[in-house]
């Protein structure tokens, strides 16, 4: 990368960081915070790691990583998000729901 491009990307990243702070402060934009974080990570990958200018095997591996991460998190959380029992809340004394409602 040319030195000026490095500087430009660095400035954009700092800008995104500031944007993240703004979003974190506004409850309505809270969901955008991790998205901006992911965006910054992707920007680093595309520029500093030269993923944007690579061809062939490298982007294939990078995409595969993203795909498998989605499977891990998506399919992995499927059970937790569709279960109806909630963990023991020892301090409130709330009873644990014993069975799942049948679908």
């Amino acid at each position: 990368m040319k030195p000026w491009s490095v500087l430009a990307v660095w400035l954009v990243l700092l800008l995104l960081l500031a944007l993240q702070f703004v979003a974190a402060g506004l409850p309505i934009l809270r969901g955008a915070v991790p998205v901006i974080g992911l965006g910054m990570a992707v920007l680093v990958a595309l520029t500093f790691m030269r993923l944007g200018s690579s061809r062939g095997l490298t982007p294939a591996f990078a995409l595969a990583g993203v795909f498998w991460l989605c499977i891990l998190i998506g399919l992995g959380s499927l059970d937790s998000f569709t279960r109806h029992d909630i963990g023991i809340s020892a301090l409130t004394g709330a009873p644990r729901i014993q069975h799942q409602s049948s679908e």
Binding site: D79, T82, D85, Q100
Partner: peptide, 21 residues
């Protein structure tokens, strides 16, 4: 093979929905 691991946990307390999947 990455999509099927839940079949080891059918009786562990996973949700019926995910077990069917």
């Amino acid at each position: 093979s990455f999509f099927v691991w839940g079949h080891h946990m059918f009786v562990a307390g996973t949700s019926l929905y995910s077990s069917v999947v």
